[in-house]
């Protein structure tokens, strides 16, 4: 690869390009120009928007949370209905609804709401997320499987019970983690 002038010129050009690259990087480190060129860190940007989203969600659903804390579950549910119709793809409403329905004793409907919420946004089963409801969902699944399991065994042809168990197993699978 050093046979003729063209080869030599190629090598020379390669060395020049490499040296220029190193010099360019070296002279620009710390000046901030590389940040300007690449724009702000996407990870930071996303983290900021995520936090803003969490704040917005908390603010949006605060009246419902307050009613729930006061024990006005039905009024909270009515308020929530408006919000779910307004933001149907926002998981938080479904998660809150699951929580309220569980408190009201509507177990099967609570499971369905949680499943809907977790399908829309898996952050609710993450330990790290500020939106995490992992402990509540875990409790629901543990209690639910204990309750539904024997009922399915006693009524194997009951489709509604089988569906309820499937939903619980879905939540169990999401709680177990994995890469998806």
């Amino acid at each position: 690869m050093f046979k003729d002038t063209f080869d030599k010129l190629c090598w020379l050009f390669l060395i020049v390009v490499l040296i220029s690259t190193v010099v360019l990087i070296y002279t620009n480190i710390g000046t901030g120009s590389e940040k300007r060129a690449a724009g702000p860190s996407k990870t930071l940007e996303r983290e900021l928007s995520y936090r803003a989203r969490v704040d917005l969600i908390n603010q949006l659903y605060l009246p419902v949370e307050n009613l729930r804390k006061e024990g006005n579950n039905q009024t909270a549910l009515l308020k929530l209905d408006e919000l779910i119709r307004k933001y149907p793809t926002e998981a938080h409403g479904h998660i809150l609804q699951g929580d309220i329905l569980q408190r009201m004793g509507a177990f099967d409907e609570a499971i369905s709401s949680y499943v809907e919420g977790v399908k829309l946004n898996g952050d609710y089963v993450d330990t790290k997320s500020p939106l995490s409801r992992r402990a509540e969902i875990q409790k629901l699944v543990d209690g639910g499987l204990k309750d539904v399991g024997p009922r399915v065994a006693a009524n194997p042809n009951n489709r509604s019970l089988v569906i309820a168990r499937q939903k619980l197993n879905y939540l169990k699978s999401r709680l177990a983690g994995g890469c998806e």
Binding site: E34, K35, A38, G39, P40, S41, K42, T43, R46, E47, Y50, G122, D123, D126, K128, S129, G177, G178, C179, E180
Partner: peptide, 15 residues
């Protein structure tokens, strides 16, 4: 870690 690289803060990518 140039700014264009993305890293999950939740989910499987954060594990």
């Amino acid at each position: 870690r140039p700014g264009f690289l993305l890293f999950s803060s939740q989910g499987g990518g954060a594990q």
